[in-house]
Design a protein around this nucleic acid. Structure first.
Lengths: 223, 223
DNA sequence: CTAGCCGTCAGGAAAACCCTGACATTTGCG
DNA sequence: CGCAAATGTCAGGGTTTTCCTGACGGCTAG
């Protein structure tokens, strides 16, 4: 079927989710400069966002990954489930491989960094609205290494961490040695080593630096 | 210049510094809704910001603390020196005692969190333009504890860390090994070990956990 | 019932870390 | 000026920790 001659100037309806009102208002002001875009809702946390998404069924959800109540990945996941027609455009400061991978697995349609030029925003929205996949130039390179190499065996599930793995990881990121973490959890050092290794492998991390970055972005180190 | 009877129609001239163009554009859109405010410059990094400040001598510099090239505190410091008439309004996501303390010592006029309501922004600008000090409600409580207790341990002049010690400590807290830190600093592993040991000893830390806690409270693990 | 994840752990090699010096500069102070 | 203290730089050697490779029983789902 051929495309219509006059592409109907159908307005793209957008829901914004960002925990920083000042940033959200700014993004809103930006996207509204495009007459084809309409902001149908704004939320400052994950739960409100999910509620508004269910209510308004927007075309695109512009989602900040760092949220106070729910992890951005969790929100994306639930959005996919509860509002399958919503496209998700992640808008974030995080340039971590881990986030990108998780979000791609969840099925987002775009990943844009806040440090990108403002023109990228409208470009990304246009691309996503058209049904495409948009990745920020700065992370596009990661996508290839991310999509190909991982997990011949995790066909069913995604990179969910088990309870023990999360516990050890938090302690490790807080500066505890495997031995110390093991003592705290009341298990053997070797077990702690195993959990940490498995978790790191699941997350695709190979160095403690990456782990600490992840921990910071997860809010694990807020004391 | 004659004084007018009505409140001064003088426009507040503002310079914006934020490394995320999308956020910066948003803030710009927000402040421009106030007719008394004029944005005279925008910069995405510290150096450009300092240059523009010298060029335009704005009334207020709205400064994001997380910058790629220079630390926000450094930028504030140099702004105070090079452009003494500029008021500085820190706009940031960081709620750390450490940052706030450092910035207050440098002599900023305002501290606003991005998670605050948009109305706070104009309020803060107005307050700062009027020569006042504005602190975000969320950090105002910290200010009192911050202004009084000036390093109880430094009574004899001891808790001062040398440059190298701080550098290695930051890297260590971020998850770098001594070896990795040494490589980054371009020194031998043994030197890095020495700095770290001396610094830990000065601070009275025995474990990495204490170090990480300290780093978090100092805001070293953000950005 | 077979496969995979989970919690638990070992052995041995490799890497990182801590402790003890060491030495040359720089800097404050009597 | 000269000396002691602080700083930047590094090595040797013993101790810990981490890393890599398995392993084994319990549970759950296909």
């Amino acid at each position: 079927m051929t495309t219509t001659l006059l592409t109907k100037p159908r307005v793209v309806r957008i829901l914004l989710i960002d925990d920083h009102p000042i940033v959200l208002a700014g993004v809103k002001a930006l996207v509204m400069t495009d007459p084809n875009v309409e902001v149908v809702g704004e939320a400052f946390d994950g739960r409100s966002g999910l509620r508004l998404a269910a209510e308004f069924a927007p075309d695109i959800v512009v989602l900040d990954i760092s949220l106070p109540d729910l992890n951005g990945v969790k929100v994306a996941e639930r959005l996919r489930a509860e509002c399958p027609n919503c496209k998700i455009l992640a808008l974030t400061v995080h340039e971590d491989r881990g986030y990108l991978r998780q979000l791609l697995e969840v099925g987002i349609s775009g990943y844009l960094l806040k440090r990108s030029a403002t023109t990228e925003l409208s470009r990304a929205i246009a691309a996503v609205a058209a049904g495409g996949l948009y990745l920020d130039p700065a992370v596009a390179g990661m996508a290839v290494e991310v999509s190909a190499p991982r997990l011949p065996e995790s066909t069913t599930g995604r990179a969910e961490l088990s309870q023990r793995e999360v516990e050890v990881l938090k302690l490790a990121a807080s500066g505890h040695s495997n031995k110390s973490a093991a003592a705290i959890l009341g298990i053997g050092v070797k077990s702690a080593e195993t959990y940490k290794a498995r978790a790191m492998e699941k997350l695709g991390f190979r160095t403690r630096v990456e782990l600490v970055r992840f921990a910071v972005s997860e809010g694990w180190l807020k004391n």
